[in-house]
Design a protein around this nucleic acid. Sequence first.
DNA 1: TCCTGATTCCGTACGGTGTAAAGTGATGCT
DNA 2: AGCATCACTTTACACCGTACGGAATCAGGA
Lengths: 262, 262
Amino acid sequence: MTVYGGQGDPARTMALLWRGGAPPGTRTAPGPRPGLTVDAIVAAGIALADESGLGGLSMRAVGGRLGTSAMALYTYVPSKRELLDLMYDQAHADLPTGYPAAGPRAAVLAWAADLWDRYLRHPWLLQVSYARPVLGPHEQAVLETLLGILDAMGLPAAVRRTAVSALLHLVRGMAQTAAESRAAAGATGDADEQWWHARAAQLAQVAPDFAQRFPHSTALAQAPAGDGGYDPVAAARAALTGGLDLLLDGLDARNDHGTQVL
Amino acid sequence: MTVYGGQGDPARTMALLWRGGAPPGTRTAPGPRPGLTVDAIVAAGIALADESGLGGLSMRAVGGRLGTSAMALYTYVPSKRELLDLMYDQAHADLPTGYPAAGPRAAVLAWAADLWDRYLRHPWLLQVSYARPVLGPHEQAVLETLLGILDAMGLPAAVRRTAVSALLHLVRGMAQTAAESRAAAGATGDADEQWWHARAAQLAQVAPDFAQRFPHSTALAQAPAGDGGYDPVAAARAALTGGLDLLLDGLDARNDHGTQVL
DNA sequence: TCCTGATTCCGTACGGTGTAAAGTGATGCT
DNA sequence: AGCATCACTTTACACCGTACGGAATCAGGA
């Protein structure tokens, strides 16, 4: 399921997200010196989620990976949800911040490609609900990069707002489709094509009138795929490219005609 | 978090999803006659999720709402995940299947509006990961309706495929943004505007160089919103309309120029 | 009519979760 | 030296999904 985020003390969460590396030399507090760091915990969490998915992410497991207990983490991180927020933001780190290439259209495509790659490398990102009210610095940087490209296209503010949301949702949605069909194929050992055939056979048995009830869907399913056979990841990637093309055409139109409405 | 679906026995799941109402009179099996029905369980689950979200959806709670225990459900439903799949599909029931109105563009907008309404009425739908490999009859009907509209636009198969994905992801994504900002506003008792002001103040304190690091974001945040002030649901709704306009413009271009490449 | 076997229902129990609360030691300042 | 403070451990709690086994219930065959 989609995990919500950012429900704890907002000030604490913000301070953690935007934590500005305390000066490393300074230390004048009694008590044992800290054996862990927030960064180490976040890194362990990310590694664990990469291996076992969000389902395998438990405080005990993260603690175990660091050689301590679950409760030891609570000194550094107020709750699991905040840890997830930190992981989410950290996983967006070190993406390119500029695409000086051949014009804004190519730049948007490159931006989307990099984000797509990041999502498929950390598929659990797609299970953490976007549109949470908390934004961390790295996710903000991704947004800023896109906005920089859109600024070069000379779009009015309202269109930029719409475009940012639409582009983000498109990349996220398509990546989600790709990641989950990949996961589904991996769970059963079957190859993709066999898997689909088996599923189609079950469907035919349980709903023999499918073709009559859903003629348009049937027609589309029978149309040749063209782009790489049955590979669902490639199909989703193609759908992303196509969707981006559609959106960018629309944006170009907004730009050329000088339409300022909306 | 996003809940996965469809991991149990696929044949059993499909049979449940497409269950073709057994003839009501017939009953020739020994043992106590069933006191529950799958439909009743699904309805109870939906009601519970509407009230308490997916977090409040436990087998014990669903059973309690029906006057029985958690384990009593397992006779009808193989697991919680399958129940969630059934709930998900059922919640898509009874949406309009045709929009004969003024042309395909208006039809797409009406289709999206109805789906948006459905999502906001059952926000937990947006936490159940779309792009699961299992499709139920009602969700399939939603897809079929959209495909019927797209067929009337005279688009090639590849473009239809892309358009379906893009449109669905757009509606889902925007609705998710709306639902979650609504939930966030509801959790704290604050009005939206106050909430955002408080959040901005915290951000300014924790990241005083925000405006320098993220000039484009800052510029966009300061541009007047125009469409209904600070109401995040209205803002997301406006973004949806804008995004749909962009996509539909792109689709119109594909149609007029007769371009057949993707 | 009684028996038999299938079927439903449910109490109990197990291993897992996040985290509250209290106890244990190590540490640096006074 | 004394002590407040912090990191960390231990224990415990409430809750979760669901495996298991027994009890109750009923249709059909004898």
